[in-house]
């Protein structure tokens, strides 16, 4: 039987899915399937990137409505995988609310990779994309080092202010300054290649692609919101680089 409590747990599943990187489509689909499995007469789900609204009509004639506001995301595909399994399980077994709550708690506390691994991976990604786009070994080494510093900068700046625009401006400024200095000293060869390797860690190329995917698949509003976010992030990154060129003067052609 669908109760307020149960609906709130179902929304928890949906919210966590969205936060951890599920498409809007999948979230709406999972929520309405689960509600149907619990014998709702009619389910209306509306999801955009920043909110979920669910309204269900029960067989008894009552209506339940709940909403969630989503403020931040971080892609975690391990959690998404588990949430997906949970939602399949709930659909086919319709367990008690208590069970769902425990499972959600178990998923919530799952860890990401350790800090050391994260730093190394930032370095690796920056270095590999520098080579990928045509840099040489020196550039890759410099880029990898800056990548690790970038991770440090992100962690530190996010502690002060979580605003995406602000974080990206400062981070790309740090990358730009370090890149310029290391090229000036002579360790790195091409500023552009070093910048692009690190940019891959910040730039919302994936968000841009996903937003267009949302638009094509019919979730126009969600797609447009994501598109705006992507453009905002991209411009904040270039503002950061713009700041660098203000400081050093005439870096860009």
């Amino acid at each position: 039987m669908l109760t307020k409590e149960l609906l709130s747990y179902i929304l928890d599943i949906g919210e966590l899915m969205l936060v951890n990187g599920a498409e809007v489509n999948r979230v709406e689909d999972s929520i309405s399937r689960i509600c149907k499995a619990y014998d709702a007469k009619r389910v209306d789900v509306f999801t955009i990137t920043s909110s979920i609204v669910v309204s269900i009509q029960l067989k008894s004639g009552n209506t339940l409505t709940q909403t969630r506001r989503i403020l931040s995301y971080s892609t975690d595909l391990d959690k998404l995988d588990r949430l997906n399994n949970l939602s399949h399980y709930v659909c086919s077994h319709t367990p008690e609310a208590e069970y769902i709550r425990n499972e959600i708690e178990k998923i919530r506390i799952r860890r990401k990779y350790g800090a050391v691994v994260q730093y190394l991976v930032y370095g690796m990604i920056a270095g590999t994309f520098t080579i990928f786009y045509g840099g040489d070994v020196n550039d890759a080494a410099v880029s990898a080092a800056i990548g690790m510093i970038l991770k440090l900068a992100i962690t530190f700046i996010q502690r002060v202010d979580k605003n995406v625009f602000f974080v990206n401006i400062l981070c790309s400024f740090v990358v730009g300054m370090l890149g310029f200095l290391l090229v000036r000293i002579g360790i790195g060869h091409s500023f552009e290649m070093i910048a692009i390797g690190n940019i891959m860690l910040l730039i919302p190329g994936l968000a841009l692609t996903n937003s267009i995917r949302d638009i094509i698949s019919g979730d126009t509003i969600a797609g447009l919101l994501r598109l705006c976010e992507a453009i905002l992030v991209a411009s904040s990154i270039s503002f950061g680089f713009g700041l660098v060129s203000v400081f050093i003067g005439g870096m860009f052609k």
């Binding site: 595909l77 503002f239 860009f252």
Partner: peptide
């Protein structure tokens, strides 16, 4: 037995237009 997004998100990375997006924005700034 996991959503296709898991693999797709990571696998699409080399294709994603990160560099082009960066150039676009830096032209706008300049």
């Amino acid at each position: 037995k996991t959503p296709a997004t898991t693999f797709l998100t990571a696998a699409i990375i080399p294709l994603v237009p990160g560099r082009a997006l960066y150039y676009t924005m830096s032209y706008a700034i300049d």
